[in-house]
């Protein structure tokens, strides 16, 4: 049995070694695949703060992923068509600068998470799952019918957005950027879990009544977790859209919300690196099984079913021999 912290470092190192190998072997596509895995991991790390620490089973996190994507799409679209963006009283210019786009994505998805959280946290359990799913779907249909930004066809961006001092069109440089964002999010998760807020949130998941007795408001704790979680997933969405230079309503699709949960479960719920391991395995499976059969989702379904029924701790649980910090 291996200690969890060893596994964490090995996985993180693996994420650096593979693209560097690909760089030396001149395989840019592998770097793109690794970037895709990093960004899915980033989105799932965001979800893991709500799901893993706070116990909030959100089946609507694609809403924040998509909002981040559209924040990037809309700002870059206005910049590349040289049309200002009219926002009622304000008129702002579009931008191709990543820091500004990221900040916008984080703020917009945090605000959305605040409103959705405020409404959804009035309920618990199954209601919460269904309501978050429904709100996610609301964004999906809205983006389809809002034809000003491409509607069902989505928005294409001709050139990837820029970051000061870097050439983001070079795959390894863009990978470095995304990997740094992932490390930052992991650091936030790690710090958060040890902080008084994280401990209180963990307690609120296990027993809201006791948390209330010591004078804390469990709903407020969960709401804050949901907002932080949504903001990180939104950032992942903005980067993901930049990776593809394309944003469309599929980023809002409920399948994506489901897949984000799947990533966490494959890796291990409530584990720091659970989502990262899950994303790495998911992208690897998608690439190899996808080349082998058109129907790889059947096998994903079977694997998932086996993990849920027989291997509760996910990959980390199997490797460490412990079912997990909580079940």
């Amino acid at each position: 049995m291996i200690r969890e912290s060893y596994i964490n470092w090995i996985v993180l190192a693996g994420f650096l070694v593979v693209p560097l190998w690909a760089l030396s072997a001149d395989e840019p596509f592998t770097i793109t695949l690794a970037t895709r895995a990093v960004l899915l991991a980033l989105a799932a790390v965001g979800l893991n703060i709500a799901l893993g620490i706070g116990g909030l089973v959100s089946l609507g996190h694609a809403a924040f992923f998509g909002l981040g994507g559209y924040a990037m799409g809309i700002l870059a679209h206005h910049a590349q068509t040289f049309t200002p963006l009219e926002l009622g009283m304000f008129t702002i210019a579009g931008t191709k600068s990543m820091p500004i786009i990221w900040l916008t994505a984080i703020i917009v998805s945090a605000l959305a998470a605040f409103v959705i959280g405020l409404l959804s946290l009035r309920t618990t359990g199954v209601y919460f799952i269904m309501i978050t799913l429904a709100f996610g779907q609301m964004f999906f249909f809205f983006s389809i019918s809002w034809s000003a930004y491409g509607g069902e066809d989505g928005l294409s961006i001709y050139v990837r957005n820029g970051f000061p001092g870097l050439n983001t069109l070079v795959p390894i440089q863009f990978f470095g950027l995304c990997f740094t964002a992932l490390c930052a999010a992991l650091f936030v998760h790690w710090k958060l879990r040890k902080s008084p807020f994280g401990l209180a949130l963990n307690a609120a998941r296990q027993s809201p009544a006791r948390v209330e007795t010591v004078g804390l408001n469990p709903v407020r704790l969960k709401l804050l977790a949901f907002v932080i979680s949504g903001a990180i997933t939104g950032l992942a969405g903005a980067l993901f859209a930049d990776l593809n230079r394309f944003v469309s309503p599929t980023m809002f699709s409920w399948q994506l919300s489901g897949e984000l949960i799947v990533l966490i479960i494959i890796g291990g719920v409530g584990r720091l690196m659970g989502p990262v391991i899950g994303a790495a395995l998911f992208v690897t499976l998608e690439h190899f099984l996808g080349a082998f059969t058109d129907f790889w989702h059947v096998w994903l379904g079977v694997i998932l079913l086996l993990i849920v029924l027989f291997a509760r701790g996910g990959v980390v649980g199997i490797l460490t021999g412990k079912a997990g910090p909580h079940v």
Binding site: L51, V262, H297
Partner: peptide, 16 residues
């Protein structure tokens, strides 16, 4: 099982 497991297992069934 907890709701999370139910969601995942039935999500897996959808895929299948």
């Amino acid at each position: 099982a907890p709701h999370l497991d139910q969601v995942l297992a039935t999500f897996a069934l959808i895929l299948i």
